[in-house]
Write a protein that binds this DNA or RNA. Structure first.
Lengths: 235, 235
DNA sequence: TCTCGTATAATTGTATACAATCATACGAGA
DNA sequence: TCTCGTATGATTGTATACAATTATACGAGA
């Protein structure tokens, strides 16, 4: 609830403030590979390119540094750190552990309202899967995880997982998912939901953990062999 | 190696730049409870208090926001999020999982040089434990974990864990550790080290995981009943 | 030719000025 | 008295000016 509100405000910032726009533009560009690794980002150049002054650029730099995307050397410059395939893999492995923990805690703390929304999500996704509505399916997929994050009732874990989720969504252009992953993903969601409903924390943890590993395996497999454009990444 | 250099530079920034000082001062103050939860932080007030202009203050705010310590509402203000006892507990639970993963990966990727340093660390700590040198013991304890983070050979995981480690170090003033934890902690380090040396990733993971849980249990237990001043938190 | 020191340019760090937005107070009108 | 609109002040958002630091170029001396 509190975090939900936070995120809304964050969105507002990102949309309407120059700093937010610069921050997201640069993150997008770094993750999509527009900038080479170790490339120097100059404040004035970026500012001119985006039509803003140095101030918002600098503030965006400080945030990017904290996210580990650039490295700022005092009085010298900002250098792109980039993100390798190994980084993505590592994130998925880390995330798989945390998603498991999240599912465990969600089992213990989920509210009836959240449980209802989760059920609704799964059944609605089942419907869209049958109809082949991939876009709605992708959106419901993301929403399922957000529900889980909120249900775990841990500000810290929710924050971590949302960060990772964001991160992963950004690299979808490089490593696109299989269009068939959607329905399969929802099957797994359903199992996780049922484990939570049955208050089986061990099972929920295990399933959520495996769910993330499956998502990764599907992603790299498809990322190497095929590349379906215009489809969202399933998690 | 790369991260090591990064951290050195980061330290330089923090020491010599106003932004770094403001950032760390505010983080310290928030975590130590100087500011109430939901308290508004005003740029000019903070700036005047620290004798700097708004610019470094603003940059520090942006970083604090990303760390989740404050919430910035556009055109309105920055509000302290604070950190509860539950947050600390959650962090330790999250960290225990990631330390486990870290130990696993370290088992697979540790270099002979890192292995040597780890052994040296453990044996040196054993010596200081016998002599009752608590300060050196605390420093070696922190260093042990840093070695582990570097040995896991994952930029992402290392980044995450160092963040958490930093975070935890900051709250030591509120929840101080038992002075007897040092030697016990090092015993556990030794076991972890031996598991890594024996290439037993499963055992290393399990031990590192439990090590963190023990550290937490010790901390809360002691935090509630006693409060030894002037001793560093272990692990 | 090579080395080293100095001068100059480029870049970041910080401070301040101005613009935009939000909160508050106050008064007119119902 | 209550409501609503406006004016005023406070605060943040952005741009620019100045200071400090670093990188580079060039020339003097060996």
């Amino acid at each position: 609830m509190e975090m939900g509100n936070y995120d809304v405000k964050q969105e507002v910032t990102d949309k309407y403030s120059l700093r937010g726009r610069v921050f997201h533009k640069l993150r997008e560009d770094i993750l999509s590979g527009k900038y080479e690794e170790h490339e120097e980002l100059k404040e004035v150049a970026i500012g001119e390119e985006l039509g803003v002054s140095r101030t918002p650029v600098r503030e965006a730099f400080r945030q990017l540094e904290l996210e580990g995307l650039i490295q700022i050397i005092p009085n010298k410059g900002a250098y792109v750190t980039g993100i390798t395939e190994k980084d993505v893999k590592d994130i998925y492995m880390i995330r798989s552990l945390l998603e498991g923990l999240c599912a465990r805690w969600a089992t213990e703390h989920i509210t009836p309202e959240q449980m209802d929304e989760m059920e609704e999500n799964v059944y609605l996704a089942e419907f869209h899967a049958k109809k082949g509505h991939l876009e709605q399916l992708a959106e419901l997929d993301n929403r399922f995880h957000d529900i889980l994050y909120e249900a775990c009732d841990s500000k810290m874990l929710e924050h971590q997982l949302k960060d990772f989720h964001q991160y992963v969504l950004r690299v979808r252009k490089k490593t696109l998912s299989n269009v068939n992953r959607g329905p399969k993903s929802n099957e797994e969601h359903k199992q996780i939901m049922e484990a939570i409903k049955a208050k089986d924390a061990d099972l929920a943890e295990k399933l959520a953990h495996q769910h993330m590993i499956n998502a990764y395996n599907n992603m790299v497999q498809k990322g190497l062999h095929e590349a379906y454009e215009n489809h969202e990444t399933q998690t």
